[in-house]
Simulated scan of single mutants.
Amino acid sequence: MMTIIISTLSLALIGASLRQIFHSLEFEHKIFSLQLFVSIMLLYTIVMVGFGIIYAVLMNQGIVVYEENIPFKHDYWVRDIVRSIYFSGVTLFTVGYGDIIPMGVGKWIAIVEAMIGYTLPAALVAKVWLKHQGDR
């Protein structure tokens, strides 16, 4: 039950962050600004940490979401979260080093996260471009 609650809260935070970035991008007649850069970095951090928490919670409940080259063991909860956030970052930015691979339900979660990471820059560029064209 706790897994569902934490996962739902993480997804709600990710969704709210995505919605907020697209509704609050206001510029001072600039295509790019420091505010935009910081907003994008914050958005990516929230998505990466949010999915990392989901992975960590699922792994803690015994649901295999990813597999490492070394056997997974619950040695310390901070390492589990850091490992999960690392996996989330590698997935979000579609780097795929190959040291951790998604397994089971983690494959589907990773696909959703990779789609967000892949389409978010295009969506933001389109939003900025349309805003810039409208200001002319």
Rank of each mutant, 00 (worst) to 15 (best):
I63Q: 09
V78M: 11
E68R: 14
T3M: 05
I63C: 05
R79S: 14
M48V: 11
V49G: 04
V57S: 05
L13E: 01
F27R: 11
I46E: 08
K107D: 00
Y118V: 06
W129L: 12
K127M: 06
I6F: 05
K127T: 09
A16V: 07
V105C: 05
H74S: 15
Y86V: 08
L43G: 03
Y97D: 11
L43A: 08
G62D: 03
D75I: 12
Y97V: 14
K127R: 14
I4K: 08
I21W: 01
Y66P: 07
A110K: 05
F72D: 05
F72V: 09
K127W: 03
D135R: 15
I85Y: 08
E28I: 09
G62K: 02
I4C: 03
S10T: 01
V38C: 10
F51E: 01
S33G: 09
L130V: 13
V95C: 04
F51G: 02
L58K: 09
A110T: 07
Y97M: 13
H23R: 11
K30D: 13
L42S: 09
V38M: 13
V38S: 12
K73L: 10
T91Y: 04
A114I: 00
T45E: 01
D80Y: 01
V90P: 00
G117D: 11
N69H: 11
P121N: 06
W77G: 00
K107H: 01
Q61H: 13
